[in-house]
Structure formats: C-alpha cells, structure tokens
Design a protein around this nucleic acid. Structure first.
Lengths: 332, 332
DNA sequence: TACGTTATCGATACCGGTATCGATACCAAT
DNA sequence: ATTGGTATCGATACCGGTATCGATAACGTA
C-alpha cells in the first residue's frame, strides 16, 4: 500500500500514463474530457506528484541550497526569511543547512546538498577552505556567497565589508571625542566576520594614535548574558573607559544592562557600540551606537541573484553587490 | 559538460557501473584492486553521488520535512537547531519550510515537501485544517506535531499545553498577591498558542473571581519595541495595574524597558510576566516572571521520535510526549 | 474516393542510481 | 577429471516521472 503513482491514476481514469501526466500538468494534446477524468481520479485516490522522478527526468531541480553557520544568532534567521520570501511563488524552494561555524561540517553539508543537484547555492562568507571551494565550483551552478565582502568570490557575492564596517564605526566613535576605548566580544575564532570588524576597528584607532585600552573576549556564543558578564569584568579591569565596542548588538544589549546595574550613565559616561541594528537596540531604554546591516535585504538580493543567474541573463549580472551599513551613534 | 555520472566513473576506472557503485558504497563482492581504481577515478573527475537517482531507486529518502510558522520568533530557530543537532550523523537530513502563520501557505508547503517523499514530517501545532491533515495522513509516514498539546494528534505529539501554561502562570501570579492584572499581546489571530495561553490565564483569574482589568493587543509581530509601545498605552489607560501578563518574553522585555523609562519599579510596583524563558530575560537588569518552555528539547524529542518511528519500534512508542514549563516568578 | 490536417493518445526510451541474479574464473577437495 | 565453493563481476530490470515520435481517428477538401 504505497503512495499512488501516476500509473495508478492513469489506470483509475482509464487512460495511459502519458495522458495522465499531460492532463495534470496542463500540457497540450489532451481532450477536455480526459483532463476531467484524470483530475477526478487523482483527487479521489490522493495522488501527490513525485519530485524525485520529475527532477531526475528533467535533469534539474527546483532546489536552492542555503548554508548558514547557525540559527542562534538572529541575523541568520532574518537572512533566511529574506531568501524564503523572494523564492515564494517562483516555484523554487530553499533548502537550509547548518554548519555550526565548523569548516569540516560545512563541507559535508555542502557536499550533501550538491548530491541533491540544486539549481543554485547560497553560502555564508568567503572563507571556505579550498576543498569546499572546489566542490562549489565543480557543481557548475550559480554560487552566491553571502554576508561578507573582503575576498574573491567563486561566482557572485552579496554582502558588506566587515573590515570597513569596523573601521567606520571606529572613526565615528572618535568624532564623538571618546578616547578610552575597550572591546567586548565572543567566539572570534569562529565568527570570522566579527573578527574582521574588530581588526578594522583597531585600525581606525591606530590611525588616531590610539589603541584598545582593554578587552574581554570569551569563546562562548554571543548573548546578552555574556555581554553583561564580560562588561562587568571589563569595567572592573578598566573603570575609566568612556566607550566599549561590542562584537554585536546582542552583546551590546548585555553591556547596557550591566551599566544599568552598575549605575553607569549611558551614553553620557560610557558609550556603547554594537553591530547589526537589531530590533532590540531600538527598544532599549538608552541609545547605543550601532551599524545597521541590511540582513533581510542581503538575503533577498542573494535569492534574486540566484534566480537571475539561472537564466541566460547570467552573463550580464553584476558579480558583486556591496551594501554599506548605516551607522547611528544614538548619543545625540 | 554535465556533472559526471557513475557510468563515467566506471568507464574511467575500467569497470562496470555496478562494480563502481559497489566500490563507492563499500558493498561486498568487490576486489580491493577495483575499489582503489574506482575511488581514484571518482576523486579525479570529481564525482558527487546523485541523491535523486538513489532515492528514486531505493524508494525512500533521507529527508525529514519540518514546517514552522516563522523564523522571526526566536523560538523556532531554537527548535530547528534541536532537530538539526539530533539528526546530525544519523544520515537523515532536515528540510525546513515556512508557513508564515498562513494555513493555506502551510498546506502548500506541506504538499510540496511530500512530493519529495520525506521519510517523516514534523509540523507545528495541532490546528491544521482538515485538508492539510488528510495530506499528512495519506503520506503514510511518521508525523510529529510539535509545540502544542491541546488536541488530537495525527500520529505523534510533542509539546506542552499552552492553555495549562497560561492557567498555571495566572495561579502563580495570584499567589504573590497581585490583583490588578493587565494583558499585553500581539498577533493573537495568527499565534494560536499565545491565544490559548491568554484563555488559560483568564480562566485562572475567573476562578479567583477576578478578570483582566485592561488589555492592549496589536496585530503586529511580537517584538520588544511593540511590547514597549503597548505597555505605555496600557499604563496610560490603567495606571493602577500591579501586574501585566505578556504574550511572550520579547513583549515582556519591552514592558521592562517601558517601566524603566516611566520610572516604575519592577517588580515591586509592577510585576511583569512573560512566556518562554528566553535568554534575554536572564540578562535584564530586573527580574520578570516567565514560563520556561523547553524549546530545544522539544525539537530534539521530535527528531528522535521521528527517527524511532521509522523503525519497527514504531508500535511501542508513546504517541504523546508532554512537557511542563517551569515557572519562575523572579520577584523573590 | 483519396488525401492532407488536426486533435488526441500511447509505446518507448531515458534520467542515474541499486537489487538481483546469472556468468566466469579460480581453487580445493574428491 | 569432476565437482563444489568462493570471489568477483556485469547484464538487466526497475524506481516514477517526461520527451519524443509515431499511430489512429475524425474531418474537410480536392
């Protein structure tokens, strides 16, 4: 008692498999009478088409593989939502995979996805090891590398320069007169983009003959709790700081909470700066500085690019789409 | 210049397709010599297996379809992470779909997934329309319904009773002596589980001859910003409230921020209660009451159940796994 | 009446794997 | 020399669709 096949629908409708196939797809060369009979039969016995057979036969799938490092960081669910929204109604279907920030796992996830013969792939970042890049290149489908911009893409690239974003935030903070600057971050070994922001940030300080007075970094995943804990630790070591740069807004929110508990005026005495422009930053009772990264738009753009790259239009597409995060200082 | 097939690997290795197939799968009846030749050839020409052909031939896939309403609510990414983690290394692969809280869209997403012949399905909630339920039943694979518990499952059910959770929170709040109670919520038309919690909550009030003094509900998606805005509006209408129940912790966090700005002491003057036990609740500078829902565990349990249900063990499995959220009042 | 056109349909091959079973070679035992 | 067992291999069928092309019937026209 398996799932009914087209053959069975055809038998129930008293026509051949081919006629049934044509009838259900709305193809030409079928009489109205046959169409009705086949539709009725399919409905009656609960026929659901088989994409495996269809895709094998058609030599292409309606799948777009998407690999992100994690879902814990709100950034990625938002990117995925953007991708999903654009694909909606196009007949294309996103398939998500998680790499957990682990390059080996990422390679296996990608290899797995490629075995489903997706029509395009969207992956996070530009820092894949050679073997992974080779897999992607050999797949001979449009590849979109997402989020990051500092590097040479396999094919298409949608993102922003995290180095430049860190540097821009550094310069912006310096214009507010802050000089005693600290850093709080998490998981820099894995989160390469946060590490790039930090390097860019430090570079901007050096150009002003400054450097980070203190920093506190933990290997854990980023979260408000961790941000709070590390901020307390940092302020114990370096109570004179007038500004702290965080690896992202989650951590920065924790910084805000720490300051509230310690009675430190934000942003008057201590300016707090994050990254992402998360929704939570808007709701906080005090303003923080942040770079607004267009996460959803990047997802949407990547999906659109993937769709277009599957058409002959492919040749005429820009290979790199650069976004620039908008900085708000929140202090004024 | 398509992707190389097994046939081509076989030709390059000087053996037949069957021998190549056996060699790559590590099956019996192949000489060491052939294995080496085939492996080398496959590596050299960059062969990647074709799951379409494999699954069509084997009459089963390694796919588990998962449908959630959204990724905007942190709850669902956590559930998905749990599912992903359990499936890791089992050879099974989760495929995610989004319904956007839209029953029609959910039905189409499910229909789409079924056309890939997944080996199991995990869907959110028990409130699917009949047509969707029929699709799921006819698929003749293990179906796990997730998150919710108030209803009759198709097959397996993992979740918690949101009605009971709301009621329990109501009773708990009453024991603290609070009597003037308000409600702040969002999107109750779509978020059926939040609506169930509210109903349970109101029932517990009625049992104490009380009712909600005021409520503020908006159709938007839940967020700290919305929680903040609605809290301000509610406190304008009903400044004497000593307790507010929120549709979830995101909204409750916004309530905390509103109180901070209004100079209202939390929890001394106003007790704030949410749902979920989100990470952010721990980091807030003041304590709120919340029900800790084991989101990740529910995902893990659902995945484990799906895996077991695909084995002969199926008959011996509990069909309903009930979780009970742990309530913390935060006030003491 | 013979013929071309059009509408409709179905037989067959194919997509890229795997299950199955028969074929072959080699060796040991009788 | 015959037999039987073992190791290795390949031909074939099949999974469930669709593309392709030839077949058939109905019809109008020369």
């Amino acid at each position: 008692m398996r799932r009914p096949t087209l053959e069975e629908v055809a038998a129930a409708a008293g026509v051949s498999k081919m006629t049934a196939s044509r009838a259900l797809r709305g193809a030409a060369d079928v009489s109205k009478d046959s169409i009705l009979k086949v539709r009725e039969a399919a409905e009656r016995i609960g026929y659901v088409g088989n994409q495996l057979a269809l895709s094998l036969s058609a030599q292409r799938t309606n799948l777009i593989g998407v690999v992100v490092p994690s879902l814990s960081n709100v950034v990625f669910p938002e990117v995925l939502s953007g991708i999903s929204a654009v694909l909606e109604g196009t007949g294309m279907q996103a398939v998500f995979g998680l790499s957990d920030y682990d390059p080996d796992k990422e390679r296996e996830v990608i290899r797995n996805m490629l075995s489903w013969r997706p029509s395009a792939m969207i992956v996070t970042g530009l820092d894949q090891p050679d073997e992974t890049l080779r897999l992607l290149r050999q797949a001979d489908i449009p590849i979109v590398q997402l989020m990051d911009l500092d590097g040479e893409p396999v094919d298409f690239n949608v993102g922003l320069s995290h180095g430049a974003a860190g540097e821009a935030m550094g310069r912006a903070l310096l214009t507010t007169g802050r000089r005693r600057i600290g850093y709080v971050g998490s998981g820099l070994g894995r989160d390469l983009r946060a590490a790039k922001r930090k390097r860019g940030f430090e570079m901007s300080l050096r150009q002003a003959d400054l450097s980070l007075e203190a920093e506190e970094v933990a290997p854990d995943f980023s979260s408000p709790s961790l941000g709070k804990r590390l901020t307390r630790a940092l302020l114990l070591k370096a109570p004179e700081l007038d500004c702290i740069y965080y690896s992202n807004d989650d951590m920065a929110a924790g910084g805000v909470f720490a300051c509230m508990e310690l009675g430190i005026a934000v942003p008057d005495r201590l300016l707090i700066a994050g990254f992402n422009g998360l929704e939570i930053a808007d709701a906080l009772p005090v303003r923080i500085a942040t770079s607004h990264s267009p996460r959803r738009e990047m997802g949407e753009t990547a999906a659109r690019l993937a769709l277009q790259a599957m058409t002959p239009e492919r040749e005429r597409l820009e290979r790199i789409v650069a976004f620039t995060p908008r900085i708000t200082l929140g202090s004024e």
